[in-house]
Nucleic acid binder design. Structure first.
Length: 528
RNA sequence: GCGCCCAUAGCUCAGCUGGAUAGAGCAACGGACUUCUAAUCCGUAGGUCGCAGGUUCGAAUCCUGCUGGGCGUACCA
């Protein structure tokens, strides 16, 4: 039975009903209501009507007699829905137990790798999207009981890094040795490279081998810088994994090569070594070792994921940009050669962020320095608004990003709408005093809709996890805040006949809201 | 050529194992602060869900084709 079923008890009874009466096995789906006044419903009668050769409404009527714990009313309505109303006590109980619900560990470990941008400059706005997404996804897994390792793969091996260090050296020669240099098209000619040249000018001058020195120094510097930038949005990785460390001992690479050879899954052609992915179901074979002796990125990736697998994770999730989607199947299939199950590695493609300036699409490029830094957007609207912006868009959504517009909209970011809920609660409690004990003993009319919204929280989290869409939680939060602000407006708490009862409700709600906000990665300011 | 993603209100987006009247925010217009924070609330206006077929009792949602946009298809990373 799936996690998505909201009301398990009732769902079992419905199942039994069809089993007993029609010898039919069904999997009832109970959904949250979509129209006013309907808490939950199932459309099962409509779906079964043809098979049972009975009118859907009749089938629904039969179900009305079912009794299940916490269900106060089942009502068949045309054309054949069964509407479900829960007893207030269910909501009350759930509300009072909220803090203790669903925090138990499931004993499974997941590795979530994201951003993993080349250490050739400060993180940009695209990485900001990945950061917000990966972070939120981590929370969703943690909420469901997984032990999560957040990991950043540092691409510190390969040709890009050589080009990068070479560029810094050129910038150094230009500024400090007054040499005339020209940058190739594939080289980095930007402010950051010049900054590094200046920062390390002394060491470069005295180094016996400046480029080797720069390789370590520049990467170290950039990684440290990016860690700091990520701290600004409250993101810290558990593991920073160095690509070059994979090459430091030959054991793993030898094992990869010999395994492939043993299984006849590699061959040499034109001086290069290929992995025979076609034999694994791929449309073509790929180079692992180039004819000049260098390994390809794919080779490192294979080693890296064998390493992940052997670190004992039950699942590995990579969040990649759309320009790498062609590599998904390639890597997953290659890993099957090492007896890693195909579903071990899951790759989520987070769609692109286009940079728009003056209505025109700009090509973002680290080499030219033509890009917007994550730092800039945090400066302009703050960490919470920035995170909220990215999280409110589905993973598949192509995002156009214009800094002007972002700043303008950031001032009235919807994140404040959600945070304001907490600030208002706090304000009430400060004025009226905090109750000794949270938790409610009865349900007041004005509270009903809010209790219902809170009841749906776990479902929203589970759905979001299942679909790998943190955006669904943002949608939920918005709905919750709407419900709260309406409640706040309609019910004057201080001075009302039910003040004591209201305060206990609001106080507990405040704890919940803070919990939820923090869990998804936002601050809960007491004052705004 | 083949493969992946996208197209919903003027704008940014929700709408999720097919369901009841397609929803928010921003922008526009009209109301609500002697009150627990108006960063709020209430109301008005705004839609052939890209187009055309199909499946179904029922399609924004699933299938096929088409149009338009983005990306991939490396001995780049």
């Amino acid at each position: 039975m799936s996690d998505r079923i909201i009301l398990k008890g009732l769902s079992m009874r419905i199942k039994d009903h069809f089993k007993d009466k029609y010898s039919l096995t069904v999997d009832p789906v109970i959904q949250k209501g979509t129209i006013e006044g309907v808490e939950f419903y199932t459309s099962l009668p409509l779906q079964l009507s043809r098979e049972l050769k009975r009118s859907p409404l009749e089938i629904a009527k039969e179900l009305e007699a079912i009794e299940a714990e916490g269900i106060i009313c089942l009502e068949a309505v045309k054309p054949g829905f069964l509407n479900i109303t829960l007893s207030e006590n269910v909501y009350l109980q759930h509300f009072n137990d909220f803090s203790s619900i669903c925090r138990s560990k499931n004993g499974k470990k997941v590795n979530i790798e994201f951003i993993s941008a080349n250490p050739t400059g400060p993180l940009n706005v695209v990485s900001g999207r990945a950061a917000a997404f990966g972070r939120a996804l981590s929370y969703l897994f943690e909420y469901a009981g997984w032990e999560v390792t957040k990991e950043y793969y540092i691409n510190d091996a390969g040709n890009q890094i050589n080009i990068f260090t070479n560029s810094i050296y050129k910038a150094y020669l230009e500024k400090f040795e007054k040499q005339t240099v020209s940058f190739e098209e594939n080289e980095y000619n930007n402010a950051y490279v010049r900054e590094l040249a200046e920062h390390f000018s002394k060491e470069i001058r005295s180094a016996s081998d400046p480029k080797t020195f720069l390789k370590d120094a520049a990467i170290g510097h950039t990684v440290a810088l990016n860690k700091k930038i990520l701290e600004r949005i409250d993101l810290s990785f558990d593991v920073w994994f160095s690509e070059s460390s994979l090459y430091e001992n030959a054991q793993l690479s030898d094992r990869v090569l010999s395994t492939l050879k043993k299984k006849s899954l590699s061959y040499e052609k034109d001086g290069a070594l290929f992995i025979k992915n076609t034999a694994l179901g791929d449309s073509q074979d790929w180079v692992l070792k180039k004819s000049n002796g260098e390994y390809t990125y794919l080779f490192g990736d294979i080693m890296y994921h064998i390493n992940k697998f052997e670190r004992g994770f039950d699942k590995a999730i990579n969040i990649w940009g759309p320009d790498h989607h062609g590599g998904v199947r390639r890597l997953q299939l290659a890993l099957t050669a090492f007896d890693i199950p195909e579903d071990f590695l899951e790759i989520i493609i987070l769609q692109q962020v286009n940079l728009i300036k003056d209505g025109e699409k700009l090509v973002m490029s680290k080499r030219s320095g033509n890009y917007i830094q994550l730092n800039d957007i945090v400066d302009s609207v703050g960490a919470d608004a920035a995170k909220y912006f990215f999280l409110s868009k589905g993973a598949n959504q192509h995002v156009d990003f214009s800094l002007d517009r972002f700043e303008k909209e950031g001032e009235k970011s919807p994140v404040f709408y959600v945070q304001y809920m907490f600030a208002r609660i706090n304000s009430i409690l400060e004025k009226a005093g905090r109750p000794d004990k949270d938790g409610i003993s009865k349900v007041l009319d004005a509270e009903k809709k809010l209790l219902y919204s809170i009841f749906l929280f776990e479902n929203a989290m589970k759905e979001a996890l299942l679909k790998r869409e943190p955006a669904m939680v943002i949608t939920y939060l918005n709905a919750l805040a709407t419900e709260f602000h309406r409640f706040y407006h309609e019910s004057k708490i201080i001075g009302s006949d039910e003040e004591a009862e209201y305060l206990k409700f609001v106080s507990a709600l405040g704890t919940m809201v803070k919990d939820i906000l923090n869990m998804i990665g936002f601050n809960a300011p007491e004052k705004m």
